[in-house]
Amino acid sequence: MNKRDWKINPLFYPDYKSTVLRTPKQPLIPVKHSLNELTGPAYGTSVIGEFDHDLTKNGIKNSPPLGEKIVVAGKVLDDNGKAIPNTLVEIWQANAAGKYIHKADSHDAPLDPNFFGGGRVLTDKEGNYKFYTIKPGAYPWGNHENAWRPAHIHFSLFGDNICSRLVTQMYFPNDPLFKYDPIYQSVPEHARHLLVSDFSLDLTESGICLGYEFNIVLRGKNSTPFENQ
């Protein structure tokens, strides 16, 4: 496997206050990979419900959810540029008002009875995924005075094995909250754009929804020769 790029993944970022008591302090111990690490879970269509790719439909009780309908699509690749087909992408997000359906979300904003906020899709054989949803709202959190998270969608991916596992967040272009958000700012400046989707007229569906493109790059097989030597 190509190494995890720790330059873009700093662990300790005290401006994000919860990292102070939760981030390990000892150095990570390198491991030699065996079959245990070079295998991983894989899921097929059996785990995908009829509307799991469409969050504007999978929580409907009596009418469509409120908010701005969007389509989010992109490619899942490895860091050698190779598409990753048939891999599971799990997503979850707040509703248009910035409220999660999660019982622990205490933000004083309304739930939408017609929006659940969780979904999943498989990439196709070219590594492409696509889902429909509602643009999530920003919401306040307790990290610091007047802290608001920029609107984001959570992503969870597997890739080829457990070493390519990734949980991340996708943001929307030009969000004025970026510069105040320590979770976004924890990523070094040169890599932050990798977390921000691009508005795309090509993906936009006329009269239906705006389109955002978000490509995701996971760790791939070691591309240099002499691996394991």
């Binding site: 959570h154 976004y184 932050r192 977390l195 790059v217």
Partner: peptide, 12 residues
């Protein structure tokens, strides 16, 4: 290609 950075799973 540069790997996509990780972000916290968050509380929800």
């Amino acid at each position: 290609m540069t790997q996509t950075p990780s972000q916290t799973i968050g509380p929800y």
